[in-house]
Design a protein around this nucleic acid. Structure first.
Lengths: 229, 229
DNA sequence: GGTTAGCGTTAGCCATGGGTAACAAGACGG
DNA sequence: CCGTCTTGTTACCCATGGCTAACGCTAACC
């Protein structure tokens, strides 16, 4: 196959619809339905506040944001915007599941790949992928796949980094946005469903027993792990 | 699933890299390696000649086109451009095969879907899809899948519309760019590998025996069928 | 030879997405 | 109460992709 240093690295990749979908998804993931500050969106997407401010007008024009005549107000998704956001999340998680399960894409690379594909597949195709996979209930990082537009949020779970020594916990999910952490955690066997026991948690590296293995985890990586008891 | 009249219909969808890839692919498919007139590219992509003229400069800048100081000369892909074009064709055909075989996407919808996805998957992912499918040699429309950068062109085959009455032929491929024709042909059983006998070919509708069935085909549709004897 | 058609280019216009610089207004800390 | 930080906005600038209008050329066609 074409092994010539990936020819395709040509342009940036900001298509009109892609940018809009990214904004909507960011607002949704930051607020979970609640209004979100523009500056937070800017940081989340690594763009300037100005870009968010301009995008705001365009998104309002598309009916994806609740129209807000008063300036300096937080961003609120409209019904349509929320539905689009949920559709994006659904596609993203279905794609991640497919890439990991069927194509054996390593866990830490699944997110980036899905991030690009999610913008170009139709709802119909997403439904076919879901059927192909047997309508999985969660993606390989442990996040639930929303099949209807219900939010089903629930407050954020505690992270592994915050657990007291000696505690036994179960891994619920990993933050897929941090490739490096996901790679390290997967290598250590810290995956959704794994039962852990925290051996030490007082320095930059914590020790965790995972099955028969005792592994050493970077604190920053452990902060990417959501857990339950 | 989100059945709300496809929310995603928001923007056009011309990302920088997408446009470049479309130009390169068009030049490749029109010329098969030989130089191509800009106007032909414009017609093929449904854009103005002006857009092609401007794209030319950008593509030269990217090293995808052979630099051409003299104006009004045909467009020639560089080595890099040709390799990119072949990669695009490979991805496209692999995607079509996957969509049709694994996800049961109807033949006439496979092209449009692949057309969008091909721009966002990595070479690595294409390789994984190929492995998943068992390295198929051709796509569902009957076009060969190029696994190396070899061109393997060979002159264009005759079309079903040009066949004399009474002749027996075998369907090699369908032109996937014409959704309507592909739908009609697939419904009639005129698919790659099918053995046909032309019963009548003198009016706007031709009659063809296909297995046990005798079907009536629109001439325009028949012109989308490449055949061999 | 003149007319007509097609081709490639240039000039100019629009929309989108992204960026800086700058500013007014509010929140916070001292 | 005064400085400092954060925020959202505005005014510009840049690149891309696409468009129409218009022009010069070439190549047919009569």
């Amino acid at each position: 196959m074409g092994n010539k240093t990936d020819l395709l690295t040509v342009g940036s990749d900001r298509s009109p619809s892609r940018a809009r979908e990214d904004y909507v998804k960011a607002i949704y993931q930051l607020g979970g339905g609640a209004p979100v500050r523009a500056a937070a969106v800017a940081r989340y997407l690594n763009v300037s506040r100005v870009s968010v401010s301009k995008a705001k007008r365009l998104l309002e024009g598309d009916g994806l944001l609740e129209p807000e005549p008063a300036p300096a107000k937080p961003l609120r998704l409209s019904h349509k915007g929320r539905a689009l956001a949920v559709a994006m999340v659904r596609r993203h998680r279905l794609l991640e599941t497919f890439l990991h399960r069927s194509l054996d894409v390593p866990l830490e690379r699944v997110h980036a790949e899905a991030e690009r594909i999610e913008h170009v597949i139709s709802d119909d195709l997403a439904a076919r992928i879901a059927a192909f996979l047997g309508r999985p209930s969660s993606d390989p990082h442990g996040h639930p796949i929303p099949y209807d537009d219900a939010t089903a949020a629930g407050g954020p779970l505690p992270t592994l980094a915050s657990v007291a020594e000696g505690a036994r916990v179960v891994v619920v999910s990993l933050d897929d946005r941090d490739d490096e952490a996901v790679g390290a955690l997967a290598a250590a066997g810290v995956l959704p469903g794994a039962a852990l026991r925290v051996e030490r948690n007082d320095t930059a590296k914590m020790r965790v027993r995972c099955g028969k293995r005792v592994v050493s985890l970077n604190r920053r990586h452990a902060a990417m792990v959501r857990i339950a008891t």
